[in-house]
């Protein structure tokens, strides 16, 4: 049982207030109880999403002038983290069924349907299209700039070196954007 809140309120014992957990698998219960509590206790920052961003998303979703209590904000942030966990475990089931070790886009979409968030499917498809186009565009632009640069360095003299430095800066940004995407990705399959 969690300790009593300052104001005298207490979060009820874990199972006392929970209605039937028909939608929650045993696995998920375990996940929430063990992983969640443990992680939150040890390294809460790892499983939390940035407060400023969560707050902004909430504010933009609600009518103007509506206040959101600090407690509500924190709760929504935690709910979002749990959503990620739930979606991941659901998507992973689909991947495992297909005997794949890598979670792919299809698995996530299937998970959304399974979790009864069909309303997300269309916006997600559109967002993914835009994202892929964006990546492709950047890649092409970056390659084009590299080609242009190669042409220039072949024929250029020193007085154009300042222009090159600007191109280089853009190039590095492009490259780092790509690398940033893959940073920390141990086994990315696309």
């Amino acid at each position: 049982m969690r300790s009593a809140h300052r104001t005298g309120y207490v979060n009820t014992a874990f199972w006392d207030y929970c209605p039937s957990l028909l939608n929650t698998s045993e696995y998920h219960k375990h996940l929430v109880e063990v992983n969640w509590e443990k992680h939150m206790a040890e390294r809460p920052e790892d499983l939390n999403l940035p407060n400023a961003v969560i707050t902004r998303i909430i504010k933009e979703a609600l009518p103007e002038g509506v206040n959101v209590s600090k407690e509500a904000r924190r709760a929504i942030s935690q709910a979002a983290s749990v959503f990620v966990l739930y979606a991941t475990s659901c998507a992973n089931n689909f991947a495992m069924k297909a005997k794949r070790k890598t979670l792919n886009a299809g698995d996530v979409m299937a998970a959304m349907e399974e979790m009864e968030f069909e309303r997300f499917l269309q916006p997600l498809r559109e967002a993914l299209d835009a994202y892929k186009k964006g990546l492709k565009g950047k890649k092409e632009a970056s390659e084009q700039k590299r080609k242009d640069k190669e042409k220039k360095t072949d024929t250029e003299e020193n007085d154009k070196s300042r222009e090159e430095e600007n191109l280089e800066e853009d190039d590095e940004n492009m490259e780092e954007e790509q690398e940033g995407e893959n940073d920390g990705e141990e086994e990315v399959e696309n």
Partner: peptide
């Protein structure tokens, strides 16, 4: 999440 090995960028 346990059992998750790798995640594709689109996912």
């Amino acid at each position: 999440s346990p059992d998750v090995s790798s995640i594709n960028q689109d996912a």
